[in-house]
Nucleic acid binder design. Structure first.
Lengths: 115, 115
DNA sequence: ACATCATATATAGATAATCTATATATGTCA
DNA sequence: TGACATATATAGATTATCTATATATGATGT
């Protein structure tokens, strides 16, 4: 990823699952789509994505099928499974909790609030 | 950390700097304070914190001084430096951007919005 | 015709932030 | 006295990302 690579650590799977929850995509398309939707904030590297996709497929979170594009080019499309949708939901809940608590800590140790 | 350890990756430094921006603290206190302020969502491990503090001190983001507590116990207090305050500000900006973009991706590829 | 770049998938090895496990020492409580 | 909380510290394991590299096709420019 661009920006602090560590901040994103652990969110990549969630983002990929979210993309596939919207529609089937092939790897390279996910990289572009993620970049576009995040206003170029997230630019996932191919070397990160492909192993991650293989891993998610092995865990049955996604399924792949091949489709011919122009020429002899074969594209490997991925589709989210029911199990993957469940994981996505869990990860979204976790993300919401995490973001909420980070913001709470950043608000500071305010003991008294004036009204 | 409790929860997904990877989600937090990269935020720990920011959270520690934020705690020290509120007031000087010693290591163990930071663990408790972070746990308290995050409603027990974040429970930083001592094995994570101490090396991180040594690192931040080496980079001159924080400074330490010793103070005697009850008995012969010496506590090592940490204080944020000007350089550390600057880093905190940068990391907060980065966090805000990151959270915003993650949420944008999670909103989905909505092309049209009804009014 | 050929080079170069974008598309597309893939893997090996490096980097870095966290973790677990362990060590040491003091204070408190049963 | 033993167990547990407090307090600091380090070594080694784990894991998610990265960079670098490989392969192959299609499009573009000269």
């Amino acid at each position: 990823m661009t920006m602090n690579k560590n901040l994103l650590s652990g969110s990549t799977t969630m983002l990929i699952l979210k993309l596939l929850d919207d529609k089937d995509m092939y790897g390279y398309q996910m990289i572009d789509e993620l970049s576009r939707r995040s206003d170029d904030t997230f630019s996932l590297k191919a070397g990160t994505l492909y192993p991650l996709l293989h891993n998610l497929e092995e865990q049955e979170m996604i399924e792949s099928y091949e489709e011919y594009a122009e020429g002899n080019r074969i594209r490997k499309y991925y589709k989210i499974t029911k199990k993957g949708k469940k994981l996505l939901l869990e990860q979204r809940n976790e993300w919401n909790l995490y973001a909420e608590k980070i913001n709470k800590v950043l608000e500071g140790g305010v003991e008294f609030v004036t009204i």
